[in-house]
Amino acid sequence: MPDFDWTLPARDYRDPALYERERQEIFAKNWMLFTWGERLKQPGDYVTGTLAGYPVFAMRDDAGQIRAFHNVCRHRGAQLLSEPHGTCGKLVVCPYHSWSYRRDGRLNKAVDFGSDAVFDPDAWSLYAIDAEEWRGLVFLRLKRGGPGLVEWLGPIHDMAADYPLENQHYFMSKDRDCEVDWKTYGENYLECYHCRTMHPGLCEAMDIDAYRIDTYGPERFFHLHAPKREGGLTRGLYFYRFPFLMLNLYDWGSSIATIEPLGPGRIRHINWYFFTDVSPEKADENRKSAEWSAQIVTEDLDIITGVQRNLNAGIYERGPLSPKYEYAVKSFQDMVREELAPRGPVQRVAAE
């Protein structure tokens, strides 16, 4: 039998202990797409959410900088902000005991504490996480320090330079909770072996025979491309940045997607659609374009939900990878292995 490369073992897609390692060693250490800048226009504007199980929020501060914090009060652990988005006053006030924090995260006041204790505003500031904005997209990183966002994006930054992201506006979202591991989804995204079987609409629009994926191991990203067929739309640029950022860029709009891991074998697939022209006159055309894209995701999720079910069942252990079509899957799996390689003691991402 030929000496194939093999998939990861099935247990790696369902093991809670491995998932906790991924949470600390992969998710927390990489930049993760969180929201878009138009939602944070003015000082005090905020967006809440969850990253790899950690409740967090991002806010525009008084100087116009985007800051991000764990959504937890330093007093008794209450959730500070409960709405998906909004605007707070000058202070973030805990709804439990009214401790308050400035927009830069520093403690403002421990209300009526009832003793002579003095709390250092810096020592008792909110648990901060890294936040940066790139061309209208807001990224967060749970573990502070490391490469800046542009450095992390690597060649993507320059390759996407002439696509008009800043001139595109949010149109709609399609988010789905799925019984699928984040690795199961990533591996499916990074091969077109299944395209002729699963994606007739995609095959009509693109020359699948010329489809290829360029892998960039050290930079942790993949460049996916195929020529459009006659009558297709415009040029496009398609990226997958490990562990789960997906950028599909066009002159007229963008499909921006990411994964929120919910646990071993569980994800939320998040997809935003932006268009240069979001006028009412273009609404029907834009919606058809977004729904066409969403249908391809639906086709993928339908099949890989069954894949995950079998990975969980305990019969299938591993399978061979096609050197012709699944070389990017192998590269993705190598990235998983490398980022989980021991590097000394595990460090927590939140202060004690």
Rank of each mutant, 00 (worst) to 15 (best):
A63K: 13
A63S: 15
G64R: 04
G64T: 03
G64C: 06
Q65M: 05
Q65H: 08
I66E: 02
I66F: 04
I66Q: 03
R67E: 07
R67Q: 14
A68M: 09
A68W: 07
A68R: 07
F69Q: 04
F69I: 10
F69T: 02
F69A: 00
H70W: 01
N71T: 00
N71D: 01
V72H: 10
V72R: 14
V72E: 12
C73W: 04
C73K: 01
R74M: 10
R74H: 03
R74A: 09
R74N: 05
H75M: 10
H75E: 05
R76H: 14
R76Q: 14
G77W: 09
G77Q: 10
G77L: 07
G77V: 09
A78E: 11
Q79I: 15
Q79E: 14
L81H: 05
E83R: 08
P84H: 09
P84D: 08
G86Q: 04
G86S: 08
T87C: 15
T87F: 09
G89E: 14
K90T: 06
K90P: 03
K90D: 14
K90H: 12
V92A: 08
V92S: 02
V93P: 07
V93R: 12
C94E: 10
C94L: 09
P95D: 10
P95F: 02
P95S: 04
P95I: 06
P95G: 00
H97P: 07
S98I: 00
W99S: 08
W99E: 06
W99A: 00
W99V: 04
S100A: 15
S100G: 08
R102G: 11
R102F: 10
R102E: 15
R103S: 09
R103G: 11
R103Y: 09
R103Q: 15
R103I: 11
R103H: 15
G105S: 07
R106F: 11
R106K: 15
N108T: 00
K109Y: 12
A110M: 13
A110D: 10
A110P: 03
A110Q: 08
A110R: 04
A110C: 12
V111W: 14
V111P: 01
V111Q: 13
V111Y: 13
D112N: 15
D112S: 14
F113M: 07
F113S: 09
F113A: 11
F113V: 11
F113C: 04
S115C: 13
S115F: 13
S115W: 13
D116T: 10
D116V: 01
A117Y: 01
A117Q: 11
A117P: 06
V118K: 15
V118Q: 14
F119L: 08
F119W: 05
D120E: 13
D120F: 13
P121G: 09
P121L: 07
P121V: 01
A123P: 04
A123C: 04
W124C: 04
W124L: 06
L126M: 05
L126H: 00
Y127D: 15
Y127W: 10
Y127K: 10
A128W: 00
A128M: 07
I129T: 02
I129E: 03
D130L: 06
D130H: 06
D130Q: 02
D130Y: 00
D130I: 01
E132T: 09
E133S: 08
E133D: 01
E133T: 07
E133V: 09
E133P: 01
W134Y: 11
W134P: 03
R135H: 12
R135K: 15
R135G: 08
R135M: 12
G136A: 05
L137E: 00
V138I: 15
V138S: 03
F139Y: 11
F139W: 05
F139M: 02
